[in-house]
Design a binder for these strands. Sequence first.
DNA 1: CTGTGTTAC
DNA 2: GTAACACAG
Length: 268
Amino acid sequence: MTNRTVYSILAIVLVFGVYGYEFFLNKKEEQAIVDSGREIKTPTVAFFLPTSTTGQVVHHQGYSLSYSESHEQAEWVAYELKKEHLSQTNFERPYFEIDKAVKTGAANWRNYKNSGYDRGHLCPAADRRYSKEAHDETFLTSNISPQNHDFNSGIWNTLEQKTRYWASKYNGVFVVTGGVLGRNLKTIGSEKVAVPNQFYKIILDYNDGNPKVLAFLMPHVNSIKPLYEFVVSVDTVEELTGIDFFPELEDAIETRIEALSDYRKWRF
DNA sequence: CTGTGTTAC
DNA sequence: GTAACACAG
């Protein structure tokens, strides 16, 4: 065998070897995309997850969500906000990305462009600043809802800041949040992303044997009223949305705390 | 903190 | 598309 033949064989093996390896990598990546969003990630505690009325629950590293295809947004986003999650790190704002883990296709961010509405985070970027990955993951289109800017930067922002305060004060809380979705809502963009008329946020402190819960229901309008004016019972939000928020909680506890709209155990 | 829009490559 | 910058509640 001449040297030339040996080199030719080596070259062929090399080329096909690289091609095969890249093919293998691509397959692996495709599989990862298909599988992504199926598994409950460690920062999210399955015990606290609400029921889904849409049948499409997606799990990310930093939060879980239930996607409503007809409204092109999540009906709820749930995550644990631990005290150690709170961080002062200031990451650069990335671009929004379509959430590939949503099988029916999550909304394109272009629906929001020039719509007059903010891309309002459901799980706030500021709640996931413990790592760049967690922070950037909040910029998926499955985690946003059209929000009036005055509302988003106003009382909703105030509520988000207060939630971080409670996470710090009570050594972590569990948060579920979303817009109240329904029929005949105004829509934006070619994909008709629904604009909720109300937003809710439910905060659970489950650290000691005496769990306490707080539910907020806010009209989609800014307000200068104090936050506690918007406290309702969890039952109220459940009736409005059809979602069962803490199905795994012991029934007796669930019945008791969900009926309350008493905020005296919480410091405002 | 919460965001948007414009300009230039 | 991406990056830099100005702007607003």
